[in-house]
Design a protein around this nucleic acid. Structure first.
Lengths: 148, 148
DNA sequence: TAATAATCGATAATCATTATTTATAGAGTA
DNA sequence: TACTCTATAAATAATGATTATCGATTATTA
């Protein structure tokens, strides 16, 4: 895990390079993405931002996220009608979603998935550009506690 | 690929076992799922059904799909805000989605993904219940033809 | 056949997301 | 500094997939 402050600076500089404006709304959103441990969704980000900026709109959140995704500084984890965002590791990697506590764990370091693109090309002649790999189940914590 | 007629009968019997009713709307939807080559989405199914049943509603399509999914007779391929359905292979398997022609190919037979659940359990202590593995890119056909 | 219970399906609502419009920041000029 | 002009940000309004609700319909049992 990179230092949140460094990550924040990196995203910030990328936006400046691209000629994007750094408004107070955007700065706050960047900070949330860089600092937040988890993988928030748009609704969560909106709620947290509203505490500071009561007038902010959802569209601003979505547009900024789209811009950051376009810039390659944020990864969208496409869950059914509820995308979450990863501002710390903006490259494709598997995710483990707990169906009980809703936590999202990073599942990189899974060897079989490392060169899967090559195998898909060999086996199906299909050229992979982007992937979305999600495993749903129970995280270690929730396995310990019996069903609510 | 199983014989479409057999598949149709299998789904039909499963619904009866569960005490579900077999209305004309439902029968037509089942037939589409069993016979259709591809992986239609709700909108597509709705359009095709409307040709036969002008009064059918989208809700009927969604409800029937939900019931079939619950019964394990249909697999939902959760694409960003546009789920598609697989009535032929209702078990988890990877999909290859062409970003140009939108076709969805089945990507089973990928060896690395066969026992991935075990590795996830070993490596992360995470118990996989369900997976959603999608690779986006160019299908063989679209690679041959230059960009439109 | 009549009463009862369960499911079906249409309308209307919801919610995430996006298109369009409006506001604002900042550059350049006098 | 004051004043345009232009580009981008942010808000409002719209869209579209999905779901909740509830009357209608069908099956079941007596």
């Amino acid at each position: 895990m990179t230092d949140p402050e460094l990550r924040y600076q990196a995203i910030l500089e990328k936006i400046q390079q691209r000629g994007g404006r750094l408004t107070s709304h955007r700065l706050a959103l960047l900070r949330l993405l860089a600092v937040s441990e988890g993988h928030p969704n748009a609704a969560r980000l909106y709620e947290e931002l509203r505490a500071q900026f009561p007038t902010i709109s959802r569209a601003t959140v979505y547009k900024t996220l789209a811009m950051l995704k376009e810039a390659g500084e944020v990864l969208e984890i496409e869950l059914h009608n509820d995308s979450h965002y990863d501002g710390n590791k903006p490259f494709a990697h598997p995710h483990l979603v707990c169906t009980r506590c809703q936590r999202i764990l990073d599942g990189d370091e899974l060897a079989p998935l490392q060169n899967i693109g090559q195998q898909i090309a060999r086996q199906y002649g299909f050229l992979v550009e982007r992937e979305q790999v999600v495993f749903y189940g129970l995280c270690p914590d929730c396995q310990k506690t019996p069903e609510a």
